[in-house]
Write a protein that binds this DNA or RNA. Sequence first.
DNA 1: TGTTAAATGACAACATACTGACATAGATCA
DNA 2: TGATCTATGTCAGTATGTTGTCATTTAACA
Lengths: 146, 146
Amino acid sequence: MHSPKRMLFLDLVLSVFRLNGLLIAEGDDMTEALGLTSARWKVIGVIALANSGLTVPGIARVLGQSRQAVQRITDVMVTDGLLSYQSNPKHKRSVLVLLTEEGRAAYKDLRDVQDPWAIQNTEDIPIEDLDAGLRLVRRLIQKFDK
Amino acid sequence: MHSPKRMLFLDLVLSVFRLNGLLIAEGDDMTEALGLTSARWKVIGVIALANSGLTVPGIARVLGQSRQAVQRITDVMVTDGLLSYQSNPKHKRSVLVLLTEEGRAAYKDLRDVQDPWAIQNTEDIPIEDLDAGLRLVRRLIQKFDK
DNA sequence: TGTTAAATGACAACATACTGACATAGATCA
DNA sequence: TGATCTATGTCAGTATGTTGTCATTTAACA
């Protein structure tokens, strides 16, 4: 039967798809002047937020994407001077991905447009709602992440 | 400053990206035996859930995608016999997209795997949490949708 | 009504992402 | 230790999705 709970869940799934597309479009608009694209600010954001060094597959895991897709982006970004690879003492082949000086500057520019955007879009949403939503999303991520 | 609210929001955005990727992977695994792909079951799902006839740009709006991307998928699906185009009395050029007999059978198969999946993944989540999460996602969608 | 703006189909170019496959490095465990 | 399984880099092919452009249809409106 079409239980309310099941319909709610399927509705939530479709809505997440839609929100995902809208968020990428928002980010692209926001960073157009910075010469960034969605694939690039996603990677920059993940690296900047990580305390320790991340490998390419590590970034892919955080983003829920294939390691090959991330590898392709990071290779181009290294060529463009935003990222650099550093030898990894823990793994002979899997290098660490770091922000270069230029990459850190790009992250600063990113934050300069992202922060007002985040503030503007949450000013009428209670922090408790955001927190509860994040907890639900994380709970679902845990279910599906292997 | 890194206000908690802003960090929460950015964390939520990244988490939505990740959940989106995981959900698509889940759906692809689930429908692999049915010969469907994520792009296809999204379209089938939208048409099946719509009461009235939808046009290609209409489907695109529901999914938050470009009409060109949807057009390409539906063209292939018409060739494969899952969908059919029907002349639209309200618009000379923009036809309506309908499920064929085969398309309806595919939707039934889709539901047969999707329903247990939905039930299984929500059994330990209170319906109030799902409802609150859906409301938050919709609230954000409204913000970004135009 | 006539003009203008918006929506749509069609086509092209490009960006992004997934899967598969293979070789090598690392981890696990008997 | 040695065998086996997993993780990673790399390359190739394919699917998905975006943007841009142009012609045509539809809608809006002065």
